[in-house]
Amino acid sequence: MQQARSGTAVAWRGASKRYGGIVALDGIDLEVRGGELLALLGPNGAGKSTAIALALGLLRADAGEVMLFGRAPAELEARRGCGVMLQSAGLPDSLKVRELLELTRSYYAAPRGLDDCVGMAGLDGLMDRRYGRLSGGQQRRVQFALAICGAPRLLFLDEPTTGLDLDARTMLWATIRRMVGEGCAVVLTTHYLEEAEALADRVAVLAGGRIVACGSVQQIRARVSQRRIRCVSALDAARVGAWPEVRSVCRDGERIEIVTDYAETVVRQLLFEDSGLSQLEVQRAGLADAFVEITREAA
């Protein structure tokens, strides 16, 4: 187990891919080890799906390479260690969930039991239903079940929780955490930054086919120094906005919200000018703020 945890599951080394004249991926270097979850973030067209397609052997890199467990992704033996959930996968409507699961399990040497898959993906009562008659959220859960049914050591999840309700998302998160705890490596792309915040050990931000930031969620957040101040105050928003340390102000009823890089200075000034100020809150930038900032800098 210890060995499985420390080994490199997937590595991109100078991987590039262009479609015609458009550079989709411009020499990225990344590595994910067992027991680690990497979130790939980036605006649409940043190269996330291309990075995953290269790792799965669906596309070939123009330059550089991608290795799965030290092998080429085109090798069946390499992919036998992987589970996959793609962003757009229309499974055959007329097949029942059980039939889809049985087939996908047969591709793996030591798959999970069917009951395990049902429990981990929340498929209770769905096994004998046809795929085409399931709701969008239920179909997503079936796709997730296909991704984990082989007991993979490396899991690719491309936008796994799009279209899921809150309960289903929470359950999927729990399953993903459990698998990471058992030594599985996970590569996740998501539009939901709170998902990356909740799950990821590391975050890589892609923009224009390059990695523009990579590190822990804390490190990424720390790249952005801005903080948010909220309070109930009678001060004139326009006047506060004129202070040199303040980036932006907006008033929402009796509350004002201030964005600044120098929270201490601004708070001192606020308290000095408005003795009636109440309900003061100071918040660090979330991953979402950092993400917006980093991708704007990169653009």
Binding site: L56, G57, R79, V84, L86, T104, Y107, F156
Partner: peptide
């Protein structure tokens, strides 16, 4: 249909015997 809906891509990404 399989190609258009992405089922073929998923099967090729999975370790399906070719």
């Amino acid at each position: 249909l399989d190609r258009e809906r992405g089922w073929l891509a998923l099967k090729r990404a999975l370790p399906m015997p070719p």
